[in-house]
Structure formats: C-alpha cells, structure tokens
Amino acid sequence: MPVSRDFKVGLFIVCTAAILFLSLAYLAVGKGFFENVHTFTLSSKSGDGFTEGMPVVFSGFNIGKVHALELNEKGVVLIKIKIPQRHIQWIKSDSEFILYRPLIGSARIVVNSENLASPTLDENMIPEVMLINDINDAIARIEPVLERIIQIAENVEQLTRVLSDPKGDFNRTLANAEKITANLAGKKSLLEMAVSDEASVKSVHEALKKMQDITVRLDDLLKKTDEQLYHQEGTLPQVNAILKDLLGKLQRLDKTIDNINQISTDTSEGMKDFRFLRSDIDDVVNAIDGVVKKIDGIVGSKKDLEFKVP
C-alpha cells in the first residue's frame, strides 16, 4: 500500500514533537521540576555573606539553595532555603545551620544533623544560622604579627638613623677611639699610657718603693712572732703541756665513768631483788591477813561488812 507524502510528513512532525516533549519531560524530571520542594526559614542577625542561590550543603553534598533573603520588622534577616523532597530527611529539628565562609571558595550554608532519628524540622520554626568566618579569623591572627613587623621596621629605621648621624653616638665613639689610639702611640710606658701624666708615674714608683720597705719590716715582725710562738718557752709549747695534762685528767675521768657505770648496773641488779622483796612483803601481808581472818572466824568478832555512807 502506497503511503502518501502527507501522511509521512504528518508522522515526522508527530514523532518529532513527541521526542521533543519526552526529552523536555525527562530533563524536567531529572532537574526535579515536578518534585515537591520544602521551604524552611532561617534567621541571622546580619545578612552579611548571604546571597540568593547560595548552596545548602549536608556532608559535602548540595541538598538545596537559598531562595530568598528578607528583613523582618525586628531587623532580623530571614533566609528562606528550598530543600527538595528527596533531601528533606537531612533537615532535622535539632540540626545546626552554619554559614561557612572559607578563605578560598564560595560561601555556603552547612547543615549538621547529629541525631538523624529526631523528627524533621517544622517549616514554621526559625532556627538561627551560626557564622564561621575563615577570612576574619585569619585576619585576626595575622594582625598582631603585622604589628610586630611594623615595630621591628621602626627599630631598624631608628638604628640606621643613629648610625648614619654625623653627630650621633656611634660616630663620636669612633672619633674617641681614634683619639685614644693616637694617644697610646705617643706614650713612653704602659703606665704613662694609662695615666697620661709623668708626675703620677713617679709617685707610683715611690709608693712601690715604700711598699718594699714595709714588706721588709713585716718579715722582721713575723720572725719575732715565730720566736714567741715556737721558742722553747714560747706559747705553743705551753699550750701543748696544758693539753697533755688535760689528757691525763680525762683518762682518770674515764675510770670514774666506768665506776659509775658499774654502780648503775649493780643498782639495776639490786632493783631486781627489790621486786622479789616487794613480792615477799606482799606474801607476808597476805599471810597475816589470812591469819587475822582465821582468828576473826574462830573468835566470831567479824564486823558487819555493809558499805554505808557515814
């Protein structure tokens, strides 16, 4: 059966339209066009860093984006985020929302859900977004370092200024050093170099001579002292004699102490006897007591042994 051209054209158009429609539908489904989208509202004191279309990330995956930013009557920024139905299970009532602004890369809202068993966030709840700001942190850390570098630079500048000043301390010191070396080169002796005056050099010489005289006299004195101390009738022999005498006396004292020791041992032995004596006396007293009791018993003169207050 011959097919007409019209029919062929019609079939082509219909097929093309169907393919176009199907591919569009496929794209729309793939992009989540027909998916149910949930809107949650977050709040922040400052809208700084938030932009529309900013991604919302859970565990490094995009699960939604910022849809709109609003400022309510209290001055609080409301951030509306849209989360498709398939990602709704990551948004929990106790989730934390953090605005993370890394040093490199674009800012994003990070969702942290510790407890995945808790219920899904109610769309009427408005949790607050916390801020983590890498840039500011880095700046805050670098600031004191920069201050120190500035100080060091200032000090270096001051140093170079002082060094380069023709009337400054450093140049004066150099000039003085020069003078001193010139002076030293012109003197006769090391002493003169130090004192820079001939008269004082002389007086130093005289003083040295006097010192020599004094040492000679001191020698004499020491000889005399030696004689006084170590001569046969000097002090030391006498001290020796006294010490020997003392030694003899101490030896005799040793005997006395031995005697005392002996006496104390004898006494302690005697004290042992005392204990026996004491027990003997007790025995005698008890025996007499017994006799008295027996006599009392025989005579029958026993008193009435009732304890009474007088």
Partner: peptide
C-alpha cells in the same frame, strides 16, 4: 558454839573484806 560461828561467818569475799 564458837566453832559453829566460825563455820558460818567465813563466806565474805576477799575483795569486800579488803575494800571495807
């Protein structure tokens, strides 16, 4: 009689006798 008395009165304990 004295012997009888002697027998009867010998029951006082030592502590009591000495304490008294």
């Amino acid at each position: 009689v004295m012997f009888l008395f002697a027998c009867g009165s010998n029951s006082v304990p030592d502590w009591k006798d000495r304490g008294f």
